[in-house]
């Protein structure tokens, strides 16, 4: 009997590609949410594989908070060019300027929650009826309850207590006008799977993921990298540290980790041995025990 064995990365890839194709086939105008983070980069790579030699039959959408690291934006523009994809950009600054949202004030103000409004406005404006996202169930306990095809009502809200059962690989994208779906092809991937896949597929990443020297401050127990949108406050000490980022969010809330891992192999070793979760450095999740669930109900990624 021949050996029809597949590794876990092969299995996860096959599942993700199947889900991407189902999303593309069942919806009129899907879009892929691209944040510049490693998960959405892997998702974009999988989308290119799923439809090869055709280009993915959907564009990318980046919700730009105006607080991105410049490295993220450079990477985004280079990648879109290289892969020949179409990119839409929705701007949180624009939402603030037009009065759709009001900027948070106070010590730990962030634009994290504001993104939900900008995203929902963008989906409505361009008529997208499904949005692929790179969220994984292992990231966070509210995300552990997500479906592959996750229904959103006409207000973009997630109703975790009333989710559709999802059996086998039968995903139903039926919905009423004005509603939409979020689709999560990477649901079953872990952080280690993502890094192992990046290595196997030789996927290029923004430089921020690799150890580099940077001026930093410590704010609320989290190491923040200085850039245009993160400036030292009175009383904060600027220290030059060797750091890298495990997740990529808004600069003011994305904690760096002290690390000398400058290659994929070093990062893989570090991830396998890690004793804290990758979102442990995310100030937005530390607000309360259910802050992710609360944001998701409002339409967050």
């Amino acid at each position: 009997m021949p050996d029809y064995h597949l590794s876990q990365l092969d299995l996860l890839e096959a599942e993700a590609i199947y889900v991407l194709r189902e999303g593309a086939a069942q919806f009129q105008r899907p879009v892929l949410l691209f944040s510049g983070g490693k998960d959405s980069i892997v998702l974009t790579h999988l989308a290119c594989k799923a439809f090869w030699p055709e280009k993915p039959p959907f564009p990318l959408l980046h919700v730009d908070t105006g607080h991105n690291f410049p490295e993220t934006l450079e990477y985004r523009d280079e990648m879109v060019q290289r892969l020949g994809l179409r990119l839409f950009v929705a701007s949180v600054e624009e939402s603030i300027r037009t009065g759709r949202v009001r900027e948070e004030t106070g010590a730990n103000a962030s634009r994290n929650r504001l993104q939900s409004v900008t995203l929902l406005d963008a989906l409505a404006k361009w008529g997208f009826d499904a949005a692929f996202g790179g969220a994984r169930r292992d990231e966070e306990k509210a995300r552990a309850k997500e479906r592959f095809f996750s229904h959103r009502d006409e207000f973009g809200q997630w109703d975790p207590k009333n989710q559709r059962p999802e059996l086998w690989n039968l995903y139903s994208g039926r919905m009423a006008p004005g509603e939409h779906f979020r689709i999560f092809p990477l649901s079953n991937w872990t952080e280690l799977d993502i890094w192992s896949y990046i290595k196997r597929e030789e996927i290029a990443l923004p430089s921020l993921y690799f150890a580099h020297e940077r001026d930093t401050v410590v704010r609320g127990g989290v190491i923040l990298g200085l850039c245009q949108s993160v400036q030292p406050r009175p009383g904060e000490v600027v220290t030059r540290r060797t750091v890298r980022f495990r997740t990529m969010g808004d600069a003011p809330i994305t904690g760096a980790v002290q690390s000398t891992a400058a290659t994929i192999d070093a990062i893989l070793a570090e991830t396998a041995a890690a004793r804290t979760t990758e979102r442990g450095g995310r100030a937005d999740d530390l607000r309360s025990d259910t802050s992710m669930e609360d944001r998701k109900k409002e339409g967050y990624f």
């Binding site: 966070e140 306990k141 509210a142 207590k161 989710q163 259910t290």
Partner: peptide, 14 residues
């Protein structure tokens, strides 16, 4: 993981 599950001490979902 869900708020209602924690409040009621039950698992609602998979």
């Amino acid at each position: 993981g869900l708020r209602a599950e924690r409040e009621q001490g039950i698992t609602i979902d998979v």
